[in-house]
């Protein structure tokens, strides 16, 4: 029977993978995906703590995180599309100028 610690370690691993993805990748879409990995790692922590404390609050926070993640993905992807129209590139380094 895995304990709370196991879930927290798994969550930490996933969060670290997401963090590494944000720094390492040179593609706006993959960076957004890495952010989703980090959000999900946090969700796992919430559900695991909620289970350990016998409370549904953890799941409710997950519900809100997902809502915010959906809003973030919609706006983020809209920005990606707008940027891609200007530079024909998804590389964040293509957008370092302050004006165009």
């Amino acid at each position: 029977m895995p304990s709370l610690t196991d879930y927290l370690i798994l969550s930490a691993l996933l969060f670290a993978i997401g963090t590494a993805g944000v720094f390492v990748r040179r593609n706006l879409i993959t960076i957004l995906l890495s952010i989703e990995i980090m959000l999900n790692a946090v969700n796992l922590t919430f559900v695991a703590f909620g289970r350990a404390l016998g409370s549904v609050d953890g799941q409710i926070i997950v519900f809100f995180v997902m809502t915010v993640a959906a809003a973030e993905a919609a706006v983020g992807l809209a920005i990606v599309i707008a940027l891609f129209r200007h530079r024909e590139s998804l590389n964040p380094e293509a957008f370092t100028t302050l004006k165009w």
């Binding site: 029977m1 304990s3 709370l4 610690t5 930490a12 670290a16 963090t19 720094f23 350990a52 016998g54």
Partner: peptide, 26 residues
Amino acid sequence: GVALASLFIVELLWALNRVTGAGRFD
């Protein structure tokens, strides 16, 4: 970034290892 992520894992594993046996699910 890679160094930061690795450091993060090491720190977390260290911290979590000190709370052994905590949080058995009821």
